[in-house]
Nucleic acid binder design. Structure first.
Lengths: 117, 117
DNA sequence: ACAATACATAAGTAGCGACTTATGATTGGC
DNA sequence: GCCAATCATAAGTCGCTACTTATGTATTGT
């Protein structure tokens, strides 16, 4: 399954209504369209359209069960956006430089253990 | 200086033209409007309008020097967006859980050193 | 079988935002 | 002082998109 581009992710998440829907889905394990519509300030068709957009951005996935469709968040879909951000975070946060150092150490340990076997 | 909301950041970065301008500024230390216009596919006023939007989102800062205005990137402006993302990255990436572990260790070492003094 | 529920799709509308051209405001060179 | 250069702002236009209402498609209960 192909990942979404940072461009699509940003355009999808730029709308406050749609982002709120995503956040609510992420907060719960699974949610139905009806439950989402209750907390949204727009009509049910509007919610369905947002859900379609979120699906195309690989941010959520739907599971049909009888009359209800249960949606769950797929946070991994955010990865391209995270990668884009990381490129610029290096400029201001030592946090991520230290993380790379740490992960490299972890990797060496992993290799060491693998060699022993 | 107040930081921008994730909402404003996403809406600002959602436009491909504007994001390309930001990326080009971030690539160079400082750039003028004219140089940006040359590489953009839109007119100079359009570029200026995008620069204004990027400024309001605290993503760039301008320095006036004679007739030219030099713009530089302010990657720290991305921090609210990074914080927003991090909230969901915890769901799929062990990377950040390990980072927290690592930073806690660093913090303990720091405290230890402080106690010695 | 029929009515009701849950959701998706169709079609149309209205507002926003990204672009244009035109003009204004400063500055530098001559 | 004057013209050219650099950028910002004004004003208007056009397309996209988020919303609406109306309708379609399954599915469940009785």
């Amino acid at each position: 399954m192909p990942a979404a581009t940072p461009d699509l992710l940003m355009r999808t998440l730029a709308d406050p209504t749609r982002r709120a829907i995503f956040e609510r889905i992420a907060g719960a394990k699974e949610t139905t369209v009806g439950a989402l519509t209750q907390h949204a300030r727009v009509s049910q068709p509007a919610v369905s359209q947002h859900l379609k957009a979120l699906q195309e951005a690989r941010l959520i996935a739907g599971r049909r069960a009888g009359r209800c469709t249960f949606y769950r968040a797929e946070p991994r879909g955010l990865q391209p956006l995270a990668a884009w951000l990381q490129q610029y975070e290096r400029m201001w946060s030592q946090r991520f430089d230290r993380l790379d150092l740490y992960l490299q150490q972890m990797q060496r340990k992993e290799n060491h253990r693998a060699r022993k076997r």
